[in-house]
């Protein structure tokens, strides 16, 4: 079972590395969106520190949304998706592999960049740590749920906008717990409640989302 997973992930990563610019666009989009907020809201440190977690999290949501449409679109256009549907291995495993690759390309860079951007907002050591941990737990869920939206809107005109309309409401719990964890730990209330809930959502998504995206793929590709 792991072989199929590994093979799918490696395949998608090599494909992504061929046109490396896509990886960078997601990260630069994330950086630009986060840096826009101080320009809009004003430079005073107290305010920025207050809203840092929320801004970084919303930017992470939008950044992972950006690259969702491409998750299945390239394979759909050149026909490999139909082949993947006929493969004996379970389709949800293949989808999990693709989502893992998508997370490595678009989720992990956000996690790595987030401390840098946290500094921009004046966050200190342990808050940056908490921001990274919450993003580490949260971004996979964004890719998993996003895969369902991407599979549903495969090959539709205006698919990009539609995916965000379908999937953003489902991201809200992750956003609430993610940003809430950072503010709670900053306020000294401890964030283990938030983190355990995010872990629960991650496990739930890991089990259910691939199956739902597989069903959605079967509907879209028929």
């Amino acid at each position: 079972m792991l072989a199929t997973l590994r093979c799918m992930v490696m395949r998608d990563l090599t494909l992504a590395m061929r046109h490396r610019s896509d990886v960078l666009t997601t990260v630069f989009f994330f950086i630009i969106v986060v840096s826009l907020f101080p320009l809009g809201v004003g430079p005073e440190a107290a305010l920025l520190k207050e809203m840092a977690a929320g801004v970084v999290w919303v930017a992470a949501l939008l950044a992972s949304m950006l690259s969702l449409t491409r998750l299945f679109a390239d394979d759909y256009n050149d026909g490999t998706l139909e082949q993947l549907l006929l493969v004996p291995q379970s389709l949800s495993l293949i989808v999990l592999g693709k989502v893992l690759a998508h997370w490595i390309i678009s989720g992990l860079p956000l996690v790595v960049m987030s401390p840098l951007l946290g500094l921009q907002f004046g966050l200190e050591g342990d808050e940056l740590m908490m921001l990274m941990v919450t993003l580490l737990l949260g971004t996979p869920v964004l890719s998993l749920l996003g895969a369902i939206g991407a599979a549903l809107t495969l090959g539709l005109r205006g698919g990009g906008v539609l995916v965000s309309l379908l999937v953003l409401p489902l991201y809200i719990p992750v956003l609430i717990f993610g940003a809430g964890a950072v503010t709670a730990s900053a306020a000294g209330m401890g964030a283990d409640g938030h983190l355990s809930l995010m872990g629960a959502i991650l496990l739930l998504a890991l089990v259910l989302a691939p199956w739902a995206s597989a069903a959605a793929l079967r509907i879209s590709v028929e």
Binding site: P169, L170, I172, P173, I176, L197, I201
Partner: peptide, 8 residues
């Protein structure tokens, strides 16, 4: 899930 996270 949304309802309880908003409640929280």
């Amino acid at each position: 899930i949304i309802y309880y996270s908003v409640q929280w």
